[in-house]
Amino acid sequence: MRGASIHLDHVGISFGDAHIVSNINLEIRPGEFVCLLGPSGCGKSTLLNAIAGFLPVTGRIEVQGAQVKGPGLDRGVVFQSSEVLFPWLSIRENVEYGLRLRGVAAAARREKAARYLAMVGLSHAGEKFPAQLSGGMRQRAQIARVLINEPSVVLMDEPFGALDAQTREVLQHELDRIWRETGCTIVFVTHDIWEALLLADRVVVMTAGPRAAIKTIETIDLPHPRDAASPECLALYRRLRDDIGAEVTRALQQQGLAREETPA
Rank of each mutant, 00 (worst) to 15 (best):
residue 69 K to V: 15
residue 45 S to G: 04
residue 39 P to S: 11
residue 91 I to A: 04
residue 88 W to S: 14
residue 80 Q to Y: 09
residue 71 P to N: 14
residue 80 Q to P: 12
residue 55 L to D: 00
residue 80 Q to F: 10
residue 81 S to G: 09
residue 37 L to P: 05
residue 84 V to E: 09
residue 38 G to L: 05
residue 86 F to I: 08
residue 45 S to Q: 03
residue 77 V to R: 01
residue 79 F to I: 14
residue 84 V to W: 11
residue 92 R to N: 07
residue 52 A to W: 05
residue 66 A to M: 12
residue 65 G to P: 02
residue 48 L to Q: 04
residue 67 Q to R: 09
residue 80 Q to C: 09
residue 49 N to Y: 09
residue 70 G to V: 01
residue 71 P to W: 06
residue 39 P to L: 08
residue 41 G to H: 11
residue 59 G to D: 15
residue 47 L to A: 00
residue 70 G to F: 13
residue 79 F to Q: 15
residue 47 L to F: 02
residue 37 L to C: 05
residue 81 S to T: 12
residue 69 K to G: 14
residue 79 F to C: 14
residue 62 E to N: 07
residue 74 D to A: 13
residue 53 G to F: 07
residue 67 Q to D: 15
residue 60 R to Q: 15
residue 56 P to C: 08
residue 56 P to G: 07
residue 67 Q to N: 04
residue 70 G to A: 03
residue 71 P to D: 06
residue 74 D to T: 10
residue 37 L to W: 02
residue 54 F to H: 07
residue 42 C to A: 13
residue 55 L to R: 02
residue 90 S to F: 08
residue 76 G to P: 08
residue 76 G to S: 09
residue 64 Q to F: 00
residue 82 S to R: 12
residue 44 K to L: 11
residue 79 F to D: 15
residue 90 S to R: 11
residue 61 I to D: 02
residue 41 G to W: 10
residue 48 L to S: 05
residue 47 L to I: 00
residue 39 P to T: 08
residue 65 G to D: 04
residue 78 V to F: 13
residue 89 L to S: 08
residue 91 I to P: 00
residue 51 I to V: 13
residue 60 R to K: 14
residue 41 G to F: 14
residue 41 G to L: 15
residue 68 V to T: 10
residue 53 G to H: 03
residue 92 R to F: 01
residue 77 V to P: 01
residue 68 V to A: 08
residue 77 V to A: 02
residue 39 P to K: 15
residue 90 S to V: 07
residue 36 L to P: 00
residue 39 P to R: 13
residue 62 E to S: 13
residue 84 V to F: 11
residue 73 L to S: 11
residue 78 V to A: 14
residue 57 V to R: 08
residue 61 I to N: 06
residue 53 G to S: 07
residue 71 P to Y: 08
residue 68 V to L: 11
residue 50 A to E: 03
residue 60 R to L: 12
residue 65 G to I: 03
residue 65 G to H: 04
residue 37 L to S: 02
residue 67 Q to W: 04
residue 70 G to C: 00
residue 67 Q to M: 10
residue 41 G to Y: 12
residue 80 Q to T: 11
residue 90 S to D: 12
residue 64 Q to L: 04
residue 64 Q to P: 02
residue 84 V to D: 12
residue 91 I to F: 02
residue 85 L to P: 08
residue 53 G to A: 02
residue 79 F to Y: 14
residue 51 I to M: 06
residue 67 Q to E: 12
residue 40 S to Q: 01
residue 83 E to F: 14
residue 67 Q to K: 09
residue 59 G to H: 12
residue 36 L to F: 15
residue 36 L to T: 05
residue 90 S to G: 13
residue 50 A to V: 01
residue 72 G to M: 13
residue 75 R to H: 10
residue 82 S to Q: 14
residue 75 R to G: 01
residue 45 S to H: 00
residue 76 G to V: 09
residue 67 Q to L: 03
residue 51 I to C: 10
residue 73 L to C: 03
residue 91 I to W: 01
residue 53 G to R: 05
residue 78 V to L: 14
residue 56 P to K: 01
residue 47 L to P: 01
residue 46 T to Y: 06
residue 87 P to L: 10
residue 59 G to F: 12
residue 37 L to A: 08
residue 92 R to L: 11
residue 84 V to R: 13
residue 78 V to T: 13
residue 55 L to C: 00
residue 39 P to D: 10
residue 62 E to P: 02
residue 84 V to L: 15
residue 88 W to N: 11
residue 75 R to W: 04
residue 40 S to F: 04
residue 38 G to N: 10
residue 85 L to W: 10
residue 38 G to D: 06
residue 37 L to H: 00
residue 48 L to P: 04
residue 39 P to V: 14
residue 84 V to C: 15
residue 37 L to V: 05
